[in-house]
């Protein structure tokens, strides 16, 4: 029904995701159910895409983020998972410099998010949870605005904008008003808006929320293809465990403002299987339930009114 069903371009997502993840034997350490917060950095030459130490953020008395440690390695697709109100959006907003970093340190490619805001912003492309394309501009104008805001030079602007639109399969719809786009198309337009600035880190907050399954696949295929083509790091929040399982290299399970577990989906699932000691094939959702323990009931109360309203609004605008 939606045009997202058709994958444009010879987009071959390449053997990017999952599958290849567990060639090496799982280290013994993963057997222990202890939450693996703050995986060690590679120690290599390239700085980590994101390095987050002891990040805390409170809204009034509510601790939205309560001591998060995580490292996103350059080039990976990293998923931040958790139910509404787990603190995912707040954490990502601290990373994007939208919110101050009151406690802890946040670094993006070695640049401090609190002190070097402009440098950090130049390196990130951010797609917020809400549909952030301007409906009263055409697709091309939407992308061109961001090219201008990131100082893309005039002589290369038109070419870059056209390429970005082409990469997300919107070349034909580029001169239509964004208000006439379907939900999936708007998400892809937002991807193009981020892509045109050549970010090193693409941050997507619930990119597939409210989309139908076909549009969801379409969005993910574009994310994967762009990642494969550009080598950019992708940090994505989602509460769809199946998507994270399929498309993310590593995931952090967040609950009540903390990272409760962090590893590849395969290792997390394998660890749970070992703990259970049976032949069942646990899903990532099972892992999540296991990690959160009996606390899952409390998570249903997670997500304040504004949070849920925003989600619903996005969903309703996506139709």
């Amino acid at each position: 029904m939606t045009p997202d069903a058709v994958t444009p371009e010879p987009v071959t997502p390449a053997p990017v995701t999952t599958g290849t993840v567990t060639p090496e034997p799982v280290t013994t350490g993963t057997v222990t159910p202890a939450p693996v917060t703050g995986t060690t950095a590679t120690g290599g030459v390239a700085p980590d895409a994101v390095s987050c130490r002891g990040l805390r953020y409170s809204f009034g008395r509510t601790k939205a983020v309560d001591g998060v440690d995580l490292t996103v390695v350059s080039g990976e697709v990293f998923g931040l998972l958790g139910p509404n109100g787990a603190g995912k959006t707040t954490a990502i907003r601290c990373l994007t410099t939208l919110l101050p970093v009151p406690a802890g340190t946040v670094q993006v490619f070695g640049h401090d998010a609190a002190k070097e805001r402009m440098a950090v912003r130049r390196m990130i492309g951010y797609v917020p949870q809400q549909l952030s394309a301007d409906a009263s501009l055409t697709g091309r104008e939407n992308v061109a605005l961001f090219a201008r805001l990131f100082d893309v030079r005039r002589r290369e602007r038109a070419e870059r904008v056209a390429l970005a639109l082409e990469a997300v399969g919107l070349a034909d719809a580029a001169d239509r008003m964004a208000g006439t786009y379907s939900g999936g198309m708007i998400r892809r337009l937002e991807l193009a808006q981020a892509l045109v600035t050549a970010p090193r880190l693409l941050m997507l907050d619930e990119p597939t929320i409210g989309l139908d399954p076909i549009a969801r696949t379409g969005v993910w295929e574009h994310i994967t293809a762009i990642r494969a083509a550009t080598g950019m790091t992708v940090l994505v929040t989602t509460h769809y465990m199946d998507e994270a399982d399929q498309y993310c290299d590593r995931v952090a399970l967040m609950h009540a403002g903390r990272v409760q577990a962090l590893d590849t989906p395969e290792r997390l699932k394998a660890a749970l299987r070992d703990r259970r000691g049976d032949d069942s094939a646990p899903t990532l959702e099972d892992v999540f339930r296991d990690v959160v323990g009996g606390d899952l009931g409390a998570s249903e109360e997670g997500g304040d009114f504004r949070d849920v309203r925003r989600t619903r609004r996005t969903a309703s605008r996506l139709g």
């Binding site: 390695v73 870059r160 390429l163 550009t230």
Partner: peptide, 22 residues
Amino acid sequence: AAPAGRPPVSAEPAAALGLAPL
């Protein structure tokens, strides 16, 4: 656990998608 992040893919696929200028 050693991070399983894959090394950044080089510019080769970028050329395939025609994204090089980006």
